[in-house]
Structure formats: structure tokens, C-alpha cells
Computed example of a mutant assay.
Amino acid sequence: MLSSDSEPSCPFCEIAEGRASADRVYETPEVLAFLPLAPATTGHTLVIPKRHVTDLWHADSGSLMPTMAASLVVAQALKKAFSPDGLNLINSAGSAATQTVFHLHIHLVPRWDDDQMAEFWPKTAPWSASKRASTAEVIRKNITDCGLRS
């Protein structure tokens, strides 16, 4: 049954509502964790709010806090189950950030020293102190102006 908080054509809403199958690993009334169809590594898991939220910029604390709490639970289970050397917690907001499913989701990607994942941080030169300071000031001003919606 389609919820009023879902998008009919959203594949993650379909999974959350049971209209599409997925390998579920954790669930609460607010969130769902399941394996992606093409995992990057063993244990790669997606955590989503059941309510449709397009991306991080459209989230409020009511959807984000349970999603992050579930991410912590799943991360601990991944550590216990697979003993990885590390873990990436990845969220993409917008197509420029490689978001392809426009329903907020957190990737938990267990990592091993010898895995086949490519490095994704570009090699860049350190910024000058003045550039860092001016960037930090712009961010601080906008944090004060925005505030978190609840």
C-alpha cells in the first residue's frame, strides 16, 4: 500500500513499503537497512528513512536522526560480522555528487586494506590559511542563518 509519505516511482519507497524485494538486514518503524543490488564490498549496506526524503538537503531531524542511529547499529554489526580494516559512510546529495536514486540513503561500505575500491579523494594542495579562514567564516554565517529544521 502506498503511503502518503512516499513517491510512487521511487525504488527505495517501493522497498520500504514491501512493493519491491530487498535483502533487509535491519528495520525500525522509521528506517530500513538493506543490501544494494551491486555492492562495492562484502557487507555494503544502505540505510534509508522509510518516509520519502529526496536528499540530505531536504531532510529534517525527524528523518535524519533515526537514519543516523540505524547507521551506527548497522556499522557495529558489520564490524562484528566481517572484521573490516575500515568503513566508509557515504551520502551523496544531487547528481553532481553521483546521487542516482533520489531518496536519502547512507552507504555503509566495509573496507579492507587490499580491497578493490578506488581512492575517491582527489590529490590537492593545501589551501592557504586565509582561504580556509574565509571559507570557514562563510559556512559559520550560513549555519547561524539556516538552523536545522525539526
Rank of each mutant, 00 (worst) to 15 (best):
M68N: 01
T124E: 09
E30N: 09
S3G: 04
H107G: 07
H103D: 06
E14Q: 12
S3M: 08
S61K: 04
T45N: 04
P126L: 02
A16M: 05
V101T: 15
E137V: 00
A129N: 06
S83I: 07
L2W: 13
V109A: 10
D145T: 06
R51E: 14
D5C: 01
D60E: 09
V47S: 02
E30S: 14
K79I: 06
F34I: 02
L104F: 09
S71F: 00
K50I: 08
R149C: 07
E7F: 00
L148Q: 11
P66G: 01
P39N: 04
G62R: 13
T135F: 14
A70I: 04
T98C: 11
A22D: 07
K80M: 11
A75V: 03
G86Q: 09
W57E: 00
A118E: 14
Q76V: 03
P49Y: 15
S21C: 06
P110M: 12
K131M: 10
Q116N: 09
H105M: 14
T45A: 05
K80R: 11
K79C: 01
D114R: 13
A70N: 04
L46E: 05
T135V: 01
S128Y: 03
R24M: 06
F34Q: 01
S63L: 01
A129E: 14
S21T: 14
D85Q: 02
I48A: 12
L108G: 06
F82Y: 15
R111W: 01
H107L: 05
V74C: 03
A16N: 04
P84D: 00
Q99S: 12
G62E: 10
T67M: 15
A81P: 15
I15N: 02
A97R: 10
P29L: 04
Q99W: 06
P110R: 11
E30V: 05
D115R: 02
W112H: 15
D23E: 08
S9Q: 12
A40V: 03
A16P: 00
L56W: 07
I143E: 09
I139F: 11
T144C: 02
P11L: 00
S95L: 04
S128L: 07
P8K: 13
T54A: 15
E14K: 08
S71N: 09
A75S: 14
R132Q: 09
A22K: 08
L104M: 11
T54P: 00
T67Y: 02
R140Y: 05
D145M: 10
V101P: 13
A16F: 07
